[in-house]
Design a protein around this nucleic acid. Structure first.
Lengths: 127, 127
DNA sequence: CTAGAACCTCACGTTGGCGTGAGGGTCAAG
DNA sequence: CTTGACCCTCACGCCAACGTGAGGTTCTAG
């Protein structure tokens, strides 16, 4: 399929697809006139890329996941990098969960003081 | 305290502190000669900023959290924005958790095929 | 009083993931 | 055989969160 259709079905821009190729994430066939032709599964792969990007992975990191995504031919070194990527992501998720809780605490504390401000019955301690 | 000490204790660069000020996140006092003087709690606040930045929040977003962090004086509008920020963060954490699991699946599938490749007993189906 | 460390204000450079033309081929339809 | 939709390759623009001098003032130790 042509680049425009892939873009629409995967929900990204044509420019993005060309960029992914530039980064070595996609290697579509070319017609004699130089136009890119993609296979059906490209759509799913691109959606996966979007997920990884949204998770904060870089093009470089995604490139290391590629052999795994495509066929499963990975070397020991690649597998190590995969685990490293995974662990970094896991750490980030933990940190973000932690941050979310801190934010919740801040909000909760804020709501309490806001409630006190609205209800004049509160015997306020520290305001 | 002076900017250099804050930077060191909070683990950020002097430039970063000046940048935070530019973004309206910090408003240190100034000496007669124009040098910045920070209070002790600035160190903790900056660490909190770092957490929020790491969680993917922008300076703009952090700025909306400021009244909450500082004193708890928030308007209804500000509280709404706080909740919106919180929800966005929660959504991202969920998505990233989801992505992490997908990555784990990919890795697991990869390890299996790698194991099959190493042990020549495997009756491989699809290579 | 003087050196050097630390501070100040511009203001341009960097990295990533694209957006957005410029300028020009290509392909299906009428 | 021409139109218009879609494709191509440069190549500069953008935004965020700082890094990195340049060029100059201020503070502190000896």
């Amino acid at each position: 399929m042509k680049i425009g259709e892939v873009a629409q079905r995967a929900g990204v821009s044509v420019r993005a697809l060309r960029y992914y190729e530039e980064q070595g994430l996609l290697s579509p066939e070319r017609t004699a006139s130089g136009q890119r032709r993609y296979t059906e599964d490209t759509v799913e792969v691109v959606r996966l890329f979007q997920q990884f990007y949204a998770a904060g992975l870089s093009s470089r990191a995604i490139a290391t996941l590629l052999p795994c995504v495509n066929n499963g031919h990975t070397t020991t070194t690649q597998r190590r990098m995969l685990h490293a990527d995974r662990d970094r992501l896991a750490t980030r998720v933990e940190e973000m969960t932690h941050t979310l809780h801190r934010l919740d605490q801040l909000i909760a504390a804020d709501e309490r003081s806001a409630t006190l401000a609205e209800v004049p019955e509160g015997h306020h301690h520290g305001v």
